[in-house]
Simulated scan of single mutants.
Amino acid sequence: MWRHIASNALTCLIVLIFLMAGVILWGKNQYASEGPLADQMCLRVERGQTMRRVSENLEEQGAISSGTIFRLGAEYTDKSGALKAGSWLIPEGSSMGDIVELVTKGGASTCGTEVVYRIGVTSLETLVRELDTETEKYVEVASFNPNEDEAPEAYTSVRDESDTRYRIAVAEGVTSWQIVQGLKAADVLDGEVAEIPGEGWLAPDSYEVRRGDTRTEVLQEMQQKQEYILAEAWGSKADDVPLEDSYQALILASIVEKETGLAEERRQVASVFANRLNRGMRLQTDPTVIYGITEGKGILGRGLRQSELRKGTPFNTYIIEGLPPTPIANPGRASIEAAVNPDSTDYIFFVADGTGGHAFAKTLDEHNANVAEWRKIEAERNSQ
């Protein structure tokens, strides 16, 4: 009788073990298989939130089939205590394992709110935007000039949130003084700037920053990037470029940057200045004269006077020979590359053509005709 009972007990134990093994295997498959999320979603994880609360949130939104399996899987992979605060973009069909990985690996938030501090040639702008998970594009929520406007609630309410992302966007052609002023207006950054960086040495680009980063650290990153871009471009310069060193390339690139905003014109504009340098002609470019007046501290806001064109300054290229002593702005990569590899042309003049671009000329007669056409366009616009 006891043997019979023992045999039955052993059989039940074996069956139970197989059942448990089956349940475990089923749970593993559930944890690793494609999830029920039909459309990608933005999951916000608050600071101090638990894996249980996150699993409940995911289950409520139909992103996972079982909060229990989700938590057990996180525990089994030793990630239940590694939850990171932030906003995480969960792709459609993500498995529970995928989601656990997303919410525990850390780094910058991948969705939610982004604050962009834009430093432009003529203005500063702080922009608050949210990611639309359907289109995967950011939608503007608010924008304001931090030097002129009071910060709106849409900004102050998200500025200190743990999942808000911050970005400094620097336009091509801004001066180092303008960049420093823009960083001062970015109130998520810390620290003072002891000295304005050298003109031309800050790479225009978009830089992701964190709350508490110092302004000096951001400037150092910009300088390191510009040094790399310049060195790379100088290493592939054309043989006939009339530049003695990479610093002269940076100077010429800054002039090209200020003369045209059209990508397709940069190498043509650069060719004009290269041709003039090769022929011993003065560059005669207005942006350098303007820099001599403003010293890069803001914009002139008016046309140049004849007296200013005749005034002797180190930056007046109507008077001095060759290049000015320093860059006149911070050029982007494309202008640097144009300066060291200009188009091969015979152009030595150019003037605005009324379309946002320029008319180029090989002779003074051609140039005078282009100037006459431009003045006609200006007169028509002023009369409207």
Rank of each mutant, 00 (worst) to 15 (best):
E199K: 04
F350A: 09
E140N: 15
N8R: 08
N370E: 12
E153T: 14
E208W: 08
G235C: 11
Q384T: 09
R3A: 05
W26S: 11
V116M: 05
V218W: 08
E140W: 00
I328A: 03
S271R: 06
A274S: 14
Y155W: 06
G120M: 09
V54R: 08
T285N: 06
P152K: 12
K28R: 08
I377W: 02
S94G: 12
R215F: 06
K376H: 15
E199W: 03
A338L: 07
N330H: 00
F360I: 12
T133R: 07
V193P: 15
S65L: 09
M96D: 00
E244T: 11
I251D: 04
A171K: 12
P324Q: 00
H4T: 07
I69R: 08
Y117V: 08
D245Y: 02
A186F: 04
G173P: 13
V188G: 08
A231F: 03
R279M: 06
A352M: 05
K84R: 13
V115Q: 03
T50Q: 11
N57D: 12
T126L: 06
A169W: 01
T164K: 02
S123G: 07
E101A: 14
G173R: 01
Q284I: 02
I179D: 00
D239A: 14
L202T: 06
I299R: 07
L16R: 07
A32C: 05
